[in-house]
Design a protein around this nucleic acid. Sequence first.
DNA 1: AAGTTCACG
DNA 2: GACGTACGTGAACTTC
Length: 921
Amino acid sequence: MTEYSEKPHLILIDGSGYIFRAYHRLPPLTNKAGLPAGAVYGFTTMLWKLVENIRKQDDAPTHFAVIFDSSRKSFRQDLYPAYKAHRPPPPEDLVPQFPLIREATRAFSVPSIEQEGLEADDIIACYSRVALERGFQVTVYSSDKDLMQLIQPRLNLFDPVNNCLIGSEQVVKKFGVVPEKLGDLLALMGDTADNIPGVPGVGPKTASRLINEYGNLSEILESAPEIKQPKLRQNLIEYKETAILSRELVALVDDKPLPEPLDNLVVKGVDMTPLRDFLSEQGFSSLLARAGGGQSAPVADGSKEMAASSSQSFDPDAYETVIDEKALDRWIADIYQKGQVAVDTETDNLDATQAQLVGVSLSTEAGKACYIPCGHGGHDLLDQKPDQMDLLLLVKKLKPVLEDPSILKIGQNIKYDMIVLSRYGISVQPFDDTMLLSYDLDAGRHGHGMDELSLLYFDHQPISFKSVCGTGKSAITFNHVPIPAATRYAAEDADITFRLWALLKPRLSSDGATRIYEEVDRPLPPVIARMEQAGITVDSVALHHLSSRFAHDISRLEEEIYVLAGCRFLISSPKQLGEVLFGTMGLAGGKKSKSGQYSTNVTELERLAAEGEAIASKILEWRQLSKLKSTYSDALIGKVNPETGRVHTSFSLVGAQTGRLSSTDPNLQNIPIRTEIGREIRNAFIAKKGHLLLSADYSQIELRLAAHVADEKALLQAFREKEDIHALTAKQLFGHVDRESRARAKTINFAILYGISAWGLAARLEIDRFSAQEMIDRYFERFPAIRHYIDRTLDFVRLHGYVETPFGRKTHLPAIKSRKVTERQAAERQAINAPIQGMSADIIKRAMVRMEPALAKAGLSSVKMLLQVHDELIFEVPEEDIEKAKPVIRQVMMEAALPIVQLSVDLEVEIGTGTSWGAAH
DNA sequence: AAGTTCACG
DNA sequence: GACGTACGTGAACTTC
């Protein structure tokens, strides 16, 4: 037996878990030989990362192996033939990849282990037992709940998805029992994926309660007759044998002989030859390049060239925790010397409007960052607070810096920090926002979250919020994070933010994005922050009434639907509904969706309803009411902030590729209006006492902008003469105007904005493709400049890979070069639409920025802007100021494009007022 | 986590 | 000759 001078550490990779994750994460690629290799590639990159990262760790492994399932049969099938019987066979394009994946493992000089009759979990258990007996530390890379049974001192799981360790504590948090009891819990619960029966009616909650009450499974089964709940008692008695069988099935076997001696798993350097051979055989050229040119591979003799590929590496131990005044003064002096600082606030709530400050992190140069805790420790009196900075002192010291006009503050999504800090009397300015920089430079290329940008630019995976605070119910708020961990996380965020700024800011001018950043997006965060903080009042009583009315109608409809269907089923399940309608009931209609399911969407149901199927109209009504109840009346009540009594949405500045805002938690940009019953939801948005809501919306702004960018004289003239634009189109296309032809013309006008296709238009208008094509041809005949605009735009996007608005907002469309026709055509339609939708967004954003100063100048500071819904702004106005406010708002909105863009068409603004949002329309 | 549906501009 | 269709969002729900 070999002796190790260092403390031995064994890492075991659950290979099967990795395979399936790689398969689902990646598109179906093929290798050089034309065989499917998406999973092979994914697995290879994961292994690469793993091998590379492992070397960087302090407790680097001395032993390392990847474990695979050998075949689909294990001893468990002998025990219980139905075990995993419901599992569909692996996808057919995955099957040929299994042997390649084992080959990949060996190419990295890593042992690949499997054993007939045993599952990977069992082999892992066997190695773990032996290693622990020999005094090893063991880490199992898997998030499989069965493997969590193994957790004990010196053995942890590492969850590769969330990048965090899973120990006893996490198991208790997740399941409510210690790892030793997990087998009993899993046996009681059962597992549908593995077809482990368990005890009916027992889920995770009941199982953990029973275990904590009675100690273990056999005690529970023995004490079953005493249990109070009749159904549970009966099930525990009746399914006693099933429970015992389930216990055997979930138990991991740890006493089989090892397929390879433990000593054979010792970590060696990577032999480059087989690795390069493998990569080149598969045609993984980017990886080959990284492994090539005589450079050594990831683990080879501990060299650092992989880590050095990013400009400067990240060292979490270099970050400082600042808890005394002197240290803070040193940082402030450094900020004044440098002239700029990256700032990030840590709080106890993701919702900025409710968040308390927990700490602040600062960074003044790459690699140099600190964290200043000021709100750690629990909030009840008994909880001890750690040594940290006094909150009031911190605010007093930081306020002059954050408000100093000569110091640039850099944030990643700085709107959040502005909202938090404003509640401590700090108004941050001037500022840059790295998220907005990225958005204005690279919309359409990738996302703009910090983790994604860090990985992209620095090849560095930041410490995840999840790994610090956990997820789901067991998540803790940041004030409960121990300060050393908080420093590593928070200071790193400031460090990354600073580095992103240094990288992205210079690109503004070289990429031609200065105008859109400076004139449209950068001024927005404080404006939107104030809107979010203002919130809007909802009438909870009215919403409650609506909810109960909906509930009543929904259950009535349910009964009627069941009668018509002749059976009970989950109406909310499209799968079950499709089977009932088109299977059991035998209604006409075919398989529609990609996954082979019957389509049951509005169009289908309306078709059935028109054919006289009573059940279809009932389902449509049921759907409408369920939607209104669950998404609106129920949900909005829960979103009322207890402190303000109002609902505060969060607007995302980078949510849409085109420059539009988006709204979340709750989304207040999709409140119903199109149906009578839906509009009642909108009526529940009300003005506060003595005020009215004012809604101002741009009339047909996108069509006007299309007319402008295309310079289509016929359309421009029609707008100038205030003609009904859809009626005009109807007249041009059909020679006459009535309700029907105007509605069709309206559809066509929209189709133009969206990038028309004969098929799409045909479906919408329920005509054949040829008539649709004829209509499109006629449209272009009458409005030739529109066709010219489309052609020009497509030429441009094919040449440059992006389109842009007159304000310089770019949308990148890399799919324009796709070899797949459908992807390419989709990109073409986006290219036609993005400049128009984007310009509309630019204009309303400029109006929003100018609105506050304009109102203030007119003595209307009490008018509050509350919401933006793409072409509409909602204000709350004191009753007596209504008439004075209207012309100010109208003028700002109409002139918002000036002076950068002189539109060849007027923008019209329609204004309505009322006590509710519904009434203001 | 993906797929389906549906609310809005 | 087949493909699969409007553009942009977010939330709830079921299924795997």
